[in-house]
Amino acid sequence: MNVVLRQMLARELTLANRRRSDLANPLFFFLIVVSLFPIGVTPDLQKLSEMAAGVLWVAALLAALLSLDLLFRHDFEDGSLEQMLLSSVPAQLLVLCKTLSHWLVTGLPLTLMSPVLSVMLALPVSAIPLLMLTLAIGTLTLSLLGGIGAALTVGLRKGGLLLTILIMPLFVPVIIFGTSAVQSFANGMPWTAQLALLGAFGAGAFAVSPWLTVAALRVTVGD
């Protein structure tokens, strides 16, 4: 079983590497949204600093969301997804592998990129580690929850926008807890409760999303 999962993870990462242009898009998107923000709103560093956590969070989530549509699409189109559902290895584990590798190639790079962009928005430097931690948890949660949405829309030609509509409302708690933790920290207020709630939500998503994702895949693939 472990061998299968290792092979699955290796396959996903190999494929991500060979489809590099898919990988770069969310990062460019993140960069562009964050740089348009001061241009569109205000270049005043004082004001930007107040909004920095929220802007970085929303931009990172939109960027990660952009790539979610592809989570199952390639595998659906070439037929690999059917084979995964038929495998003797539980499909939930395979799906979890896919979700984790999705995070490794989108959420993690976005998290690693966030310090540079946070400097552009004048987020206090001391808040950067917490920003990265919350973004890491938040993007992982997005990959997990988004997997359900991606599974529900995988057979549809224009699934991308629909996926956004489906997932965004579900994601409100993560945005609230994530931004609030960073903002509170930057303002010198207590922030651990938010971080704990963010972690709890992520853990809950981790526990239920593989099952729901597979249930959704059985519906859309079995159509």
Binding site: G159, L212, D223
Partner: peptide, 22 residues
């Protein structure tokens, strides 16, 4: 939107039910 996007009404039923549960 999910219901209407599905070509087969039965798929829409099931997909929307899963989404409603989430």
């Amino acid at each position: 939107a999910l219901h209407n996007a599905m070509e087969r009404a039965e798929s829409g039923d099931r997909a929307a039910a899963i989404l409603a549960l989430v």
